[in-house]
């Protein structure tokens, strides 16, 4: 019983902290939380918005979780998503006009995955051939990706109709992801859940996944057991990057229809939070991505009811992960 109360206190502490923060900013925490809950779960529209928001978070979380199983900390989901979105838009706009959906959409998914995979393999190679820490290289490459997208959207990919706030030309209507009924929820959401299930299955139920977990547990033992550590880590980064790249494709084909300089901005970092909140377990990331999606949607409500900027919920997100990290995994093994 005592452990239950301690556990509850830990779960509540970030929310209490955030309430104190709201109070210090002159907002009523109870009213704010109420408005947040109502906007995220009050009606089907809200729940749909949460599903839409959590889709990229789930995929970028998987992009963190897969390499993490092989002992790598990939913070590059942000850049991998952006390059995936860039390649998707480029190919979609210039080569797939008038192509039927059953050809075009799979090609776009592949392009997203390819873009992300390229942005994932670079830090993996740098780690193996130049001993460069992947956390630092992926972080630096995120900035490079951001400016690359900026370059294309202001340059070769700029829609001539866009002036001060440039964006790329629109994707063909046929290439947009189908939505459910009259909602904005698109099949990308289902795709993301399926991806999480597949990743879970591969990691926990196949031989490749077993090897990956051995590496993550103890790379030296894995080497001695004859596992090709370098090749496996490379694979993990390529697949992680590809999954994040697909998130970029979904942002373009499912939501925005065109590329903006800020497309997907911040999603990679939120995915990182989601993955670490779930201790890099693919199934748990479904839950944490959904939670962070809900908090994101609730942020807009916060803006409307208490006039606080929607970005303030990222403080709540950080509080939650800091609590999770502080509590630690206890005796549970990976």
């Amino acid at each position: 019983m005592r452990r239950f109360w301690i556990g509850l206190a830990f779960v509540l502490s970030p929310f209490v902290l955030f309430a104190l923060f709201l109070l210090s900013q002159g907002a009523n925490p109870l009213e704010s939380y109420q408005a947040m809950l109502r906007s995220a779960f009050g009606d089907w529209y809200g729940i749909g918005e949460v599903a839409i928001k959590s889709t990229p978070f789930l995929l970028t979380a998987l992009a963190v979780a897969i390499p993490a199983r092989a002992g790598l900390i990939n913070v590059g989901g942000e850049g991998q998503l952006m390059i995936g979105a860039l390649l998707t838009t480029w190919v979609g706009v210039f080569y797939l006009q008038g192509v039927p959906a059953w050809v075009g959409v799979p090609v776009l998914i592949l392009m997203g995955a390819l873009g992300g995979a390229i942005w994932g393999i670079v830090p993996a190679l740098l780690r193996q051939y130049a001993r460069m820490n992947e956390t630092i290289t992926t972080l630096l490459l995120n900035y490079v990706a951001f400016f690359t997208v900026g370059y294309f959207v202001h340059g070769p990919l700029k829609d001539p109709e866009s002036f001060n706030w440039p964006f790329s030309p629109k994707l063909d209507e046929a290439l947009r992801l189908p939505t459910f009924g009259s909602t904005r929820v698109h099949i990308g959401f289902v795709l993301a859940i399926v991806a999480a299930l597949v990743v879970w299955f591969v990691i926990f139920r196949t031989r490749v996944g077993f090897r990956l977990r051995v590496i993550g547990g103890n790379a030296i033992a894995a080497l001695q057991a004859g596992i090709k550590v370098n090749r496996m880590q490379l694979l993990a980064m390529v697949f992680g990057g590809a999954v994040a790249g697909i998130a970029g494709m979904i942002e373009i084909a499912g939501i925005e229809g065109h590329l903006r300089p800020m497309t997907g901005f911040g999603y990679g970092y939120i995915g990182f939070l989601a993955a670490w909140m779930a201790w890099n377990h693919p199934l748990w990331t479904i839950g944490t991505a959904f939670l962070l999606g809900a908090i994101s949607v609730a942020g807009n409500a916060l803006e409307m009811t208490s006039g606080l900027p929607s970005s303030s919920v990222s403080i709540l997100m950080a509080f939650i992960l800091l609590t999770v990290l502080a509590v630690g995994r206890g005796s549970k093994a990976s």
Partner: peptide
């Protein structure tokens, strides 16, 4: 505190602090 006392992963904690600082200062 998190790294020394709670033995949390150094890189993950650092990143979360970036996120926290970005949120707080933007706000």
């Amino acid at each position: 505190f998190l790294v020394i006392q709670r033995r949390a992963n150094q890189l993950a904690v650092g990143l979360t602090i970036i996120f926290l600082a970005q949120g707080l200062t933007a706000f």
